[in-house]
């Protein structure tokens, strides 16, 4: 039993006790730390407040599935929260982002379609389209650069500013 406890302790130390720290892309090398989510359920970590959200001013980023630009139902609470804050803002800039798995132009178009989907949702909830600007940043602004599915999912997002 002691052996098992000792091994578990070593595993926890080796994996940083599961703590998620802020990741600066420029500092990331080939770390041996990998966190893999096998079921592909993005909502598990998209809704967690782990400090890796790319938005500002209390607004929350909206996350997307691989290769898609439709807003999923599990993003509803984030959209609702954002709408309340957006009503008091004179301008909102939406930045579409992608993971690294597309190629040049297509990835930037995918980021733009994501930003536009969020814009249409905001407009349908009463935010003036005139107050919203869009830009796609493609894969140029990753929040996370670890080669894990969890990390890739954090980069498929629209940030609010």
């Amino acid at each position: 039993m002691k052996k098992i406890a000792f091994i578990l302790t070593l595993i926890l130390i080796a994996t940083g006790c599961g703590k998620k720290s802020k990741v600066k892309p420029s500092n990331v090398t080939n770390s041996s730390e990998t966190i893999t989510i096998n079921d592909g359920d993005v909502s598990k970590y998209n809704n967690s407040d782990d400090g890796l959200d790319g938005s500002s001013g209390g607004l929350k980023s909206i996350y997307f599935e691989f290769g898609r630009y439709d807003i999923t139902s599990d993003m509803e609470s984030r959209m609702s929260s954002n709408v309340e804050i957006a009503k008091s803002k004179s301008s909102i800039r939406l930045e579409g982002n992608c993971d690294e798995f597309g190629t040049d132009e297509y990835n930037y178009a995918l980021g733009l379609k994501r930003a536009n989907a969020v814009k249409q949702s905001l407009v349908s909830r009463g935010i003036s389209a005139d107050n919203i600007t869009l830009v796609s940043l493609g894969e140029s602004k990753p929040l996370c650069t670890q080669p894990t599915e969890q990390c890739y999912a954090k980069n498929r997002r629209v940030d609010f500013h």
Binding site: Y108, A115, V135
Partner: peptide, 8 residues
């Protein structure tokens, strides 16, 4: 252009 602009 808003959004994106690429010379292809």
């Amino acid at each position: 252009s808003e959004g994106m602009m690429v010379c292809s």
